[in-house]
């Protein structure tokens, strides 16, 4: 029975680790300027954690195999762990401690570069409104100014997702509101996240970015996409019945295509 345990634990550990190592299921390709650092951090953690995982499981399996008392075995005395508890404690504190220091030192830089650095001045500003259960995006329009948001004017029925007041606020009249986030490639994007009703989250796996929308707060989020294409933005914060279906597409276009798209939108709005 001890041998069976050892075999089962070993198979589980090795198969699980192999599926990680072979990237059978893995992150989608990174298309962001900052993502490679997150991926590196993740890979380093994966290697360390993987070694710990396999080592612990194999040690457990090995000891159970070795020290199981089977029928007909002669009685033998128990042995204590070589060196007792001290080397284990020292090993754990040193190994895990160093790992923690390294991960924190490197990781907090990665974190800071995404969340503690303001967007560059040339970044394109886009407002995002998350609501049950859709995202809407607003560009300032030809005047370069965003109209003020008035919650009392928000109405899905009239497509006034941002609560604009074009009757009185002239800066709001040319604002472009769309359901797809269209951005130029290789240009920093500076988003302002607004939640209309409950918590939502902005998650684009390819962009390696995630941030909650919180009602009552305007949360900045910035990134730069490095590859053109069409991607999906999904909600990762439970927001109600339609949470599973809360998504928008992101189209990363060349600067020329983007300029053309923006012009076409300005003409229709």
């Amino acid at each position: 029975m001890g041998r069976l345990f050892a075999v089962v634990v070993t198979v589980i550990a090795l198969v699980s680790a192999a599926i990680f190592a072979l990237h059978v299921w893995w992150l989608p390709p990174d298309i962001s300027a900052h993502g490679s650092r997150i991926d590196r951090q993740l890979n380093e953690t994966m290697v360390t954690a993987g070694i710990l995982f396999v080592a612990a499981q194999l040690a457990l399996g090995l000891f159970v195999w070795r020290f199981d008392v089977r029928d007909g075995m002669p009685p033998r005395a128990v042995k204590t762990f070589p060196g007792g508890v001290t080397p284990l404690v020292v090993l754990a504190i040193l190994f895990v401690g160093i790992e923690i220091l390294v991960l924190t030192f490197v990781g907090s830089k990665v974190w800071a570069s995404v969340y503690q650095t303001p967007a560059p001045a040339e970044a394109l500003q886009i407002e995002v409104e998350a609501e049950q259960f859709a995202f809407y995006f607003r560009y300032a329009g030809p005047d370069g100014k965003f109209g003020t948001m008035h919650p009392d004017l928000m109405n899905d029925a009239t497509q006034n997702f941002f609560g604009l007041d074009p009757a009185n606020d002239t800066t709001a009249r040319d604002d472009i509101v769309v359901g797809t986030l269209v951005i130029p490639v290789n240009q920093p994007i500076d988003l302002r996240l607004h939640a209309k009703d409950v918590n939502h989250s902005f998650y684009v796996p390819e962009l390696r970015i995630q941030q909650d929308f919180v009602p009552g707060m305007v949360i900045p989020l910035h990134f730069t996409a490095t590859q053109t294409g069409k991607y999906e933005l999904v909600c990762t914060q439970l927001c109600g019945l339609g949470h599973y279906n809360m998504r928008a597409y992101i189209e990363v276009k060349t600067p020329a295509d983007f300029a053309q798209w923006l012009k076409a939108q300005a003409a229709t709005s």
Binding site: Q132, A134, D156, A157, F161, G240
Partner: peptide, 12 residues
């Protein structure tokens, strides 16, 4: 009675 679909906010 106004009618809406929360999953597709434009439906009205």
């Amino acid at each position: 009675i106004a009618l809406k679909c929360n999953v597709h906010p434009w439906m009205h």
